[in-house]
Amino acid sequence: MNGKHELYFERYDRTTHRLGRAACLLTLVLLLGAPFAIGGYLGAMPDLGAVAKGFLAIGLVWMGSSIGEYILYTPMLGAGGSYLAFITGNLINMKIPCAMNAKELVGAKSGTKENEIIATLSIATASLVTILVLALGVALLIPLQPILQAPALQPAFDSVVPALFGAMAYQYFRGHMNMAVWPLVLMGVLFTLLPALVANTSMMVLPAGAAAFLAGYLLTKKSIKQQ
C-alpha cells in the first residue's frame, strides 16, 4: 500500500469512528426512547422500579456477556464492522460467521486494512438483508394475527422460554458437560428445596453463571497443570 493509499485510509478510518460513534449514540437514544414513546401512546409509562429490579437480576449478567463479546469479536470485525455489528445484533448466530466466511473467501488477514473493508461490507450487507427479510416477513404476518392469537395456540406461545432453553441446553451442554453439570445440579437442588425461588428465577442466573465460571476456571487450571 503506497503513501497516498495510507493517507486515504487514515482519513476513512477517522470518519468511520466519528460516524460509528454518532450512529451508536443515536440508536441508543432511539432504543431507550421507544418504550417511553409507546408508553405515551398506550397511556402507561414503564415502571422504573421494576426496570431497576430486573436489571439487577439479569442485566448485570448480560452486561458481563456484552463485555466478553466486545473483547472477543472486535478483533475479528475491525472498526466499521464492530460499530455495525453491535448496533444490529445477532452476532453469534449470523454476523460473526458471515464476516468470517467473507474473510476466508477473499483471504483477508485479521487486523489488516483489507479485513477492515471486507468485514464492514459483510456486516452491512448481512444487516440489510436481515432487515429486508424481516420486513417482508412481518408484512405477511399482519394478516395472520387472528390465527396467532387463537386460544388453541396459546400453550405454544406460553412455552417459548422452555423451548428456547431446551434447545440451547443440548447445544451448549454437550460441549461443556464438565462445566455445566455443577450449576445444573446446584439449581435443581436449590429450586426443589426452596420452591419460592421459582418466582425469581432470573435472580438465580448470576449464582448459576458464577458456579459455571468457577467450574470452567478450575478445569482450565487443572488441564494446564496436567500439560
Binding site: V61, V161, P162, F165, G166, M168, A169, Y172, F173, H176, M179, A180, P183, L184, L186, M187, G188, V189, L190, F191, T201, S202, M204, V205, L206, P207, A208, G209, A210, A211, A212, F213
Partner: peptide, 9 residues
C-alpha cells in the same frame, strides 16, 4: 450455561 441451568432447574 448459568442462564440455561437456572431456568431448567
Amino acid at each position: 450455561i448459568g442462564l440455561i441451568s437456572a431456568y431448567l432447574g
